[in-house]
Design a protein around this nucleic acid. Structure first.
Length: 679
DNA sequence: GAAATCATACTTTTT
DNA sequence: GTATGATTTC
């Protein structure tokens, strides 16, 4: 049984609060998960039915962990509790109620690469056959497709007009504005025609559901309690959704820490957490006792965050035994840094801290590449979280598109991609055939749509159609078998198309295993886009689970985790803060919080590494980055908390920032409001 | 029309 | 160092 008396008084207050909406401001390491678990347990014990609780978290993993723990505490099954990310919950609700806004339950969810691909496709269609003349500017390049997707998402998520987004964030694309606008319009139209949604649509349409009184009533009356984790990383749209959901009388519990807000690039705003008490007339409970870290570590992290501009004032404290101050490790260069990290890693290992108790944190995924070489050379096993994703690998994407065609034969993007796998079919032929399939009457008719092909491709198209037919006949409940069958067609294509096909075939094995573990093809595809495998271990599987290994993670992916020993790499200006994020004051503040998140992951020992010299060439202009300058966030006050004697100057920066969300009342309204941004 | 070659802008964090 | 659009070649 869960022992409430094991909680601190503040935790207990938060767990058992019964008088309305509640905000729990939980500083780093103050037992947020414990408190949330206790609250869930409390609710279940008070007789709240598990299916009447909605648990919104940042990742599926987080939701699963919380529900598991609560289940162990109460012995009650939480299988019927709704849990997951905003996007995943939106997906579920839209499958169920989407018809009310004209959305078939079989819609497909696009990930960001799909979005980029579709944008590229419609842009290509837009430039007619006539105007190939660009004599004045022979090498004029247009924005990349991924850039187009970034621009679009930024417009939608911040509710800012296209021209402003272009001016402030993508100045080199400004002269393409007209073309970009038409591409966006065509993109939206195509998206609607094919019943595919992008990530932003999921949230916008959930909002749209809430604007339909009958549906809103159903959704609102479905839950008595809504718990939101990591509230500091929600965006204005998500806050609106919460308000809409709570309008029927459900009680809200939001948990978060404004000092750990690190997702503003995804339009999250710490304003949400700052304004929550007033907006929802909520009580605030503040957790300030740090159970995780030693007093020396807490002193250092407090010093880092003390200089943040806007925050819920709080002062964390710890009464744990001390293990000494965190260490600032100045290194000659990056290679030296790698060596020193390995040395310390092994040192702590010899002292009894397993590799699994240690982590290496980086600002950007590629910051660890040199270190990975060193680890490999020294035979130190590691797994890596964040960064490049499985799904983005071309051959994996090929398989996913094939699966999507099984599920939804009218998935234009999938056709376009899969057809090009056939030798002898390029973009032109693929587009023609795809168009034929789209106009065709039924789900089949592939061959009818591809008249006049040479014999080779013609035969390959026939085999493709046979493959899809076979897969469909396996039924929707057998994703594993479908992958097996699809591979008979795909494997040879992959082998012929990509150089290192061995590793790629192995990836398809992995995908097959993942699929086999899933209940249905539709579910598998949705999971894959909404909650993709995030670490190398998710994929490499548990063969070396017995082995000890160290974790490498981006700081973003390390959120919510903790380790005995933490190594933070590249604590230099240009890395932290990233030189790509130094545009305005808000961006700099976020980088400060990022460093704070990294440092607060440590329980006992913390090392910050700062190379003095970099050997790679400086990018951009000629401000020479040959020398690594210590991060500006290590001010004298912070340095006083570290084992080091050096200090550096602190530059300043300038402000400017937009904000706002898009409100929605139906698909057309959504589209119109978004289109209004394309001024 | 498709494959091969060339030139150049860009390079983070993730649902 | 890389990815991708534009251009040239087959």
């Amino acid at each position: 049984m869960f022992d409430m008396s094991a909680l601190t008084p503040e935790q207990r207050t938060a767990a058992t609060y019964d008088a309305g909406h509640l905000l729990i401001v939980a500083g780093a390491g103050t037992g947020k998960t414990t408190t949330l678990t206790a609250r869930l347990t409390h609710l279940l014990r008070c007789g709240v039915a598990p299916e009447r609780i909605l648990m919104l978290t940042f990742s599926r993993r987080a939701a699963a962990e919380l529900l598991n723990r609560a289940e162990q505490m109460t012995g009650e099954s939480t299988a019927s509790t709704w849990g997951g990310t905003f996007h995943a919950v939106a997906n579920r609700m839209l499958r169920r109620h989407g018809r009310a806004i004209g959305l078939e339950p079989s819609f497909t969810v696009m990930d960001q690469t799909d979005t980029a691909d579709l944008l590229a496709l419609v842009r290509k269609e837009l430039d007619g056959p006539g105007d190939q003349e660009l004599p004045e500017t022979p090498f004029r390049r247009r924005a990349r497709k991924q850039t187009l997707a970034d621009i679009l998402s930024r417009c939608v998520n911040t509710g800012s007009p296209l021209s402003q987004v272009l001016r402030t964030s993508f100045p080199w694309c400004a002269d393409e504005k007209a073309e970009i606008r038409s591409a966006f319009e065509a993109y939206t139209a195509r998206k609607r025609a094919r019943q595919v949604l992008d990530f932003d649509d999921l949230l916008l349409f959930w909002g749209a559901l809430l604007r339909i009184p009958d549906v809103a009533r159903i959704l609102q009356s479905q839950f008595d309690h809504i718990l939101v984790d990591e509230y500091q990383d929600t965006n204005p749209l998500q806050a609106d959704l919460l308000e809409g959901m709570a309008a029927g009388g459900a009680t809200l519990t939001a948990v978060g820490d404004d000092a750990q807000a690190i997702y503003s690039f995804r339009a999250a705003t710490h304003r949400n957490i700052m304004e929550f008490p007033a907006r929802f007339a909520a009580e605030v409970v503040m957790l300030q006792r740090n159970h995780r870290s030693t007093p020396s570590l807490v002193a250092a992290t407090n010093a880092v965050i003390a200089e943040a501009a806007l925050r819920h004032p709080k002062q964390l404290w710890s009464s744990r035994d001390d293990r000494g101050r965190p260490e600032l490790v100045r290194c000659d260069d990056e290679a030296d840094q790698s060596r020193r990290v390995c040395d310390r890693l092994l040192h702590h290992h010899e002292q009894g801290t397993k590799l699994q108790g240690q982590a290496i944190l980086v600002r950007a995924a590629h910051h660890s590449s040199l270190l990975e070489l060193e680890l490999t050379a020294r035979k130190i096993p590691f797994i890596k979280y964040g960064g490049l994703r499985f799904l983005e690998a071309a051959h994996v994407k090929d398989m996913v598109c094939l699966l999507r065609l099984i599920e939804n034969p009218r998935d234009e993007l999938a056709w376009f991609r899969v057809l090009q796998l056939i030798e002898g079919l390029g973009p032109g032929a693929a587009r023609r055939i795809t168009a034929g399939v789209m106009e065709g009457p039924g789900p089949s008719g592939l061959e009818a749509a591809a008249p006049g092909l040479p014999a080779g491709p013609q035969e390959a198209v026939g085999l493709l159609e046979q493959t899809l037919t076979d897969c469909r006949s396996l039924g929707p409940e057998a994703p594993g078998a479908a992958v097996e069958r699809a591979r008979l067609w795909l494997d040879p294509a992959v082998a012929a198309r990509y150089p290192n096909s061995g590793a790629r075939i192995a990836d398809l094995d992995q995908l097959g295993r993942l699929a086999a573990a899933s209940g249905s093809l539709r579910q598998f595809l949705a999971d894959l886009t909404l909650d993709p495998p995030s670490s190398t271990s998710d994929l490499a599987g548990p063969p070396h689970l017995d082995d000890d290994f160290v974790t490498i993670s981006t700081i973003h992916s390390a959120k919510g985790c903790e380790w005995d020993v933490v190594h933070v790499l590249h604590v230099t200006d240009g890395h932290i803060p990233s030189d790509l994020a130094t545009g305005d004051a808000e961006a700099i503040e976020e980088e400060r919080r990022l460093l704070y998140v990294a440092m607060t992951r440590a329980r006992n020992h913390l090392y910050a590494y700062s190379p003095l010299r970099y050997h790679y060439r400086p990018r951009g202009r000629d401000d020479s980055h040959g020398f690594g300058q210590l991060t500006r966030f290590f001010t004298p006050a912070v340095l006083a908390c570290l084992d080091t004697a050096r200090s550096t100057r602190i530059p300043e920066s300038d402000p400017s920032a937009p904000a706002g969300a898009v409100a929605a009342t139906g698909i057309e309204t959504v589209d119109r409001m978004v289109a209004a941004l394309w001024d």
